[in-house]
Design a protein around this nucleic acid. Structure first.
Lengths: 214, 214, 214, 214
DNA sequence: TATGAATGAGGGTTCATTCAT
DNA sequence: AATGAATGAACCCTCATTCAT
C-alpha cells in the first residue's frame, strides 16, 4: 500500500529527532528554572510546543525526561571546549583557562544546572554522580594533564597534578561562585573574574612554580 | 497527690515550645532530604509525629515553615563555633580552622542544607541570600579578620584579607566538597581532609607569608 | 467550703448570660455577612472575643448557634415595633406603616438576614419557616388586623384583609427591595421610599376604599 | 467499515460541548441545592459523572463554574418567553402574564436560583447584579413596554410605566412567593395563583385604567 | 505519531469539633 | 466555666500519567 504523502504517515527519523530536540529544549528551560519537583509536565509541554501526550511518546516518564535533560546539559554547556594547548606559558595558560572556567561556571545556565542537579543528587545519586564526573571531574582531569605537561617540562613541581588542578579551580571561585548561586551577588563582571583569577594564579605559581635557575 | 514532674501538668509555654521544636525537627528531616517542592506537609506531619492540622497552628504555611527551618539551620549548624584565637601560629591556625571548616561543610547535614537552600535560591532569593550571608560570608569575614591580625603582626602580607580568606576556604575544598555533594564520592575521611587542608595551607603561605628575616 | 470570691468560682447567671450575648453578637455579625457555610467558628470566636472552645460551652454545634442567631434576629430586628394605632386616617396609616416597613426591610441588617435565612431555607426548612412566620407573616397579620378595623369602620371594603395586607406590603417593595438585595442598586433613600409607598397607597385605596358618600 | 453513528467517532467539539453541558447540569443541581459555599467540587463531579480533575479542564475554578451556572440559569429559566403581544385586552394581558410570571417564579428551580444568587450577592455583587438585571429587571422592562402601549392606546393612564410594571409584579407575589421561598408553604397551586393574580389585576386596573367614556 | 480529554491520587490548607487542663 | 492545642476529615486544586482517536 503506497503512502499518499510522507507527511501523513510515519515520520522520518529526522522529524523524530527534531521533535525530540524540541521537547528537550522546552524541558530544559522548565527543569532548570523550577527544579525537578517544581517543574510540571504540563508546563514542559507548553514550553516545548507539543501536547502533554507527546512527551510520553518520547520519554517514559518525568524521571527519564529529566535524566535526558541532564545528559544534554552535560554535553551542551561548553565545559569540553576549554583549550589547554593554546598557550605554553604556564601563567597565561592558567589565567586563560581560569577566566574561561569561571565565566562558564557563573553563567545563569550553568548555575541553574548545578543547582538543579545538586538538589536532586540525594534522591538520584547516579544523576549527580554522572554530572559531576562528566562535567567537573573531566575538566579537572584535563587541567591536571596540562599541569602534568608543565611538570614534565620542568616548569612546575607538583606531586598530584589532578589534585592541584582542583585546587586551582576552587581558588578561582573565591568570592565569586558561591555568593552568585545563593543569589547574594549578581553575576560577576569579566573584570572581577580576571582579578580573582589573577590572584589565584599568583598564589598557585607561588606554591608550585619551579624557581627559574637564572 | 504530688505530681511526678512538672512537664506532665503545665500545658503552656514549655509544651508549646516543645511541640514547635518537634515540628521543626520533623520538617528539617523532610525538607533537607527532599527539598522544598519534594517535601509534603503530610510527610512532615508524620515525621514530626503530629497531625497535619497542627502544623498550621505553629506555622502559617509551607513557606513559613521552610524559612523557619533554614533560619534554624543557620544557627544550629555550628559555623559560628570556629575558634580563631586558639592559636597564634599562623600555620597551625589555618590548618586548625581549615579542618574544622571542611569537616563541618562535608557533614551530611550541611551538604543537605546547602543543596536545599541553593536549589531554592532562584525562587526565594532572600532565603538564599540570608543563608549565604549568615553562614558562609560570616565565616569568611571572621577568617578575614584573623588574617588581618596576622598581617598587622607582620606575619602575612595581604591586600584584601577577606578575599584571601575566601581563597583559602575554597582551596580547602579542593577534591572534597563538590564530589561529595554530587554524590560522586563518600564523605571524606578526616585524614583526607587533613591532607587537603595541609596542601591548601602550604599554597596559601607560599603566596602570602612574609619571608622570615632570619 | 466557702468561696473566696465570686469571680473565681462558678459564674453567676448574669455573667453566663452576658457571655452568651457576647457570643450571639459576634456570631450574628459573621453569619449575616458570610452565610451559614461561609462563616467559620474560628472567625465567630474572634468576633465574639472568646475562645473557640467557649462557643461549644454555650452551643452544641454550629447549627445550634445559627438557629439561636436567627431566633435573636427575629426578636431584634424591629419588625414588632410598627405602630398601627397611631393614626386613624387610613391613608396616613398606610403611608406611615409602608415607609417604616420598607425602611426596615431595606436596612443592610435586614437584607443580610433575609439573604442568609432564605439561602438556608432549603436545607433547614424549620429555620426558614420560623423566620417567615414570626417576622413577615406576623407583620402581615398585624397590618391585616388594622385593615380589618378600617373595614369595620366602613372605610375600606376588603374580603380577605390578611391577603390585602400582603398585597399592600408587596406593592410597597416595587422597584426597591429586589434590586437592593441583588446589589443592583444602593440602599434606597427615604425620599424614594416615600414616593413608592405613596404610589402603592394610592393604588391600594383606589381598589379598596369605600367611595365617600358626599 | 462504516461507522454506526458519528457520535461514536469524533471526539472533538460535539463531545466537548456535551461533557461541558454534563458538568453544568451536575453543577447546577449541587449549587442550587447547597449554595456556593455548601457545594463541594467533589459532589459536583459526582453529580456530573466526571472526575474532579475534569471539572478543571472545563472551568478554571469553583467561582468560574458558579458564574457559568448562573449565566446558564439566566438564559434557561424561561423568563424570556413571556408573550405580551398575545392579547390586546389589558385585563387578559395582565392576568396571562401575571400567572405565567408567578408560575415561573414559584417553580423550585427558580426559587433555588434566587436563593442561591441572592445569598452570594453580598460577596459577588456582579453576579447578583447580572442576575437581577437580565432576569428580573428585563421582565419588568418588557412589561413596562407593554403597559406603555396600553397607555398610548388610551387604555391606561400611567406616569412611569416601568415602575408600574414592578408594582404589578410585586403585588402578584402577595402571599405566594415569600412564604414559598422561606419554606413556610408548599408550591402554590395554579388555582391559588390565578386568584392572587386576579386580585392584583383588579387592584392595578382600579388605579390605572382610564374610565370608559360610555 | 500526535493529540488532548480524562483521571485519581495527592498536593496545601481550612475547619468543626474535642479534650485535658 | 473557659481555654486553646490538637485533630482528621474535607476542602479546592494540580499533576503525572493513560488512552481512544
Amino acid at each position: 500500500m503506497p503512502r499518499l504523502s510522507p507527511s501523513e504517515a510515519a515520520p522520518t527519523p529526522d522529524e523524530h529527532c527534531a521533535k525530540r530536540r524540541q521537547i528537550l529544549t522546552g524541558a530544559r528551560a522548565v527543569f532548570l528554572e523550577h527544579g525537578f519537583d517544581g517543574a510540571s509536565m504540563g508546563e514542559i509541554a507548553k514550553a516545548a510546543g507539543v501536547s502533554k501526550g507527546t512527551l510520553y511518546v518520547y520519554f517514559a516518564d518525568k524521571h527519564s525526561l529529566f535524566v535526558a535533560i541532564v545528559e544534554a546539559e552535560i554535553h551542551d554547556q561548553g565545559w569540553g571546549s576549554f583549550d589547554f594547548s593554546a598557550d605554553t606559558d604556564v601563567e597565561r595558560q592558567l589565567r586563560g583557562f581560569g577566566q574561561a572556567y569561571i565565566q562558564t561556571l557563573c553563567k545563569p545556565r550553568s548555575s541553574s544546572a548545578i543547582r538543579t542537579v545538586m538538589a536532586i543528587a540525594e534522591r538520584m545519586p547516579e544523576v549527580g554522580r554522572s554530572y559531576y564526573e562528566r562535567v567537573i571531574a573531566q575538566t579537572v582531569r584535563r587541567l591536571g594533564e596540562a599541569l602534568k605537561r608543565q611538570v614534565e617540562a620542568g616548569v612546575l613541581k607538583i606531586d598530584d597534578c589532578e589534585f592541584a588542578a582542583s585546587q586551582f579551580m576552587m581558588s578561582c571561585q573565591a568570592s565569586l561562585f558561591l555568593p552568585f548561586v545563593f543569589q547574594a551577588t549578581p553575576q560577576p563582571t569579566p573584570e572581577r573574574i580576571a582579578a580573582v583569577v589573577d590572584s589565584a594564579t599568583r598564589m598557585f605559581l607561588a606554591a608550585y612554580r619551579v624557581p627559574s635557575s637564572s
